[in-house]
């Protein structure tokens, strides 16, 4: 310690001797620039364009995976079962990048606690980390890749084609999705504590990925089942549900007869009972005598 002090003091003494030299100002300026530049480089938000090679992505994803996912999904994504056969985490071989992007991007994974179903919550990883994780899991076995905006956008279509897509999407939605997700996409209950989540207000990419990969207990709607165009149409229809004003008045959550019946019985009949009480109530009485004119 004393040695360190002595050497620092000696160095400081030497610098001190030159502090009024002709080049001191320039040196301070250069040092300052170097210092701030290094600091900026260390703390600046990383750019997505910092194209790391695929191998780097996979290696980085594996690091993240071993820390955050391997406890349940196994060190090589092979899945873990308990001794009595319960699944802790399913195997991730062949689920593809789309499943990772959906599960981690919507915050469902990592799960905060074991339960009937993973909840949607703010994501625990940033976009770059999710991409790395997706790249690693995709490298375990072939699976669906992350869809691009071209897959689910109808912007490239003419007005007539768009209308056609929305109508067809609506029919496909009503046939395939409403059983669990409700006719307005409000979601619904499923057996043993599960539920089909609300799908209004969900990013198109995640809807597409959910159809592609079948998260949790959902059936998959692979490209052989619903073609990419049909998936795009369903997403276009869901977009119009959100844009269309509630023409029938208050939707009450779009939950159907339960919420509507509750509203009618409590609020509607409650108001009527209130009026009935008012009509039949005694009016205020005065103690004064009426003066007959």
């Amino acid at each position: 310690m004393r040695l360190l002090n002595r050497s620092v003091n000696g160095w400081a003494g030497r610098v001190s001797r030159h502090r009024r030299g002709p080049l001191a100002g320039l040196m301070v300026l250069l040092l300052g620039l170097l210092f701030t530049g290094t600091l900026y480089a260390a703390f600046a938000p990383a750019q997505a364009q910092q194209a790391s090679s695929d191998a780097d992505q996979v290696a980085k994803g594996r690091e993240l995976f071993l820390v955050g996912c391997a406890f349940c999904h196994g060190q090589n994504g092979e899945g873990i079962r308990t001794q009595n056969g319960n699944q802790i985490g399913p195997a991730l071989v062949g689920v593809g990048a789309a499943a990772v992007d959906f599960q981690v991007g919507t915050g469902r994974m990592p799960m905060s606690q074991p339960g009937a179903q993973a909840q949607r919550k703010p994501p625990a990883y940033n976009d770059e980390e999710i991409a790395a994780l997706a790249a690693y899991v995709a490298s375990l076995g072939p699976g669906p890749s992350i869809p691009t905006a071209d897959d689910y956008s109808i912007d490239g279509l003419s007005e007539d084609q768009r209308q056609e897509a929305i109508v067809r999407g609506g029919q496909i939605f009503l046939t395939n999705c409403t059983a669990c997700h409700n006719f307005e996409g409000s979601g619904g209950a499923m057996p043993r504590g599960g539920y089909a989540p609300k799908i209004r207000g969900v990013e198109p990419r995640y809807i597409y990925e959910a159809m592609l990969t079948g998260p949790q207990a959902m059936d998959t709607f692979s490209n052989g089942n619903l073609s990419p165009e049909e998936k795009r149409d369903v997403i276009a229809y869901l977009g119009t549900i959100e844009e269309t004003p509630g023409y029938g008045g208050f939707g009450l959550g779009g939950l159907g007869p339960v919420s509507e019946g509750l509203f009618a019985w409590l609020v509607g009949l409650g108001a009527l009972v209130g009026f009935a009480i008012w009509i039949a109530a005694h009016t205020t009485r005065s103690t004064k005598e009426k003066v007959e004119a």
């Binding site: 067809r168 029919q171 496909i172 046939t175 395939n176 079948g214 059936d219 998959t220 709607f221 692979s222 052989g224 089942n225 619903l226 049909e230």
Partner: peptide, 18 residues
């Protein structure tokens, strides 16, 4: 398939499809 009326090949479907 309902709505679109296209026939289904055995190879179209993956495990888990409905």
């Amino acid at each position: 398939r309902d709505v679109v009326g296209t026939p289904i090949k055995l190879s179209d479907l993956e495990i888990g499809d409905l």
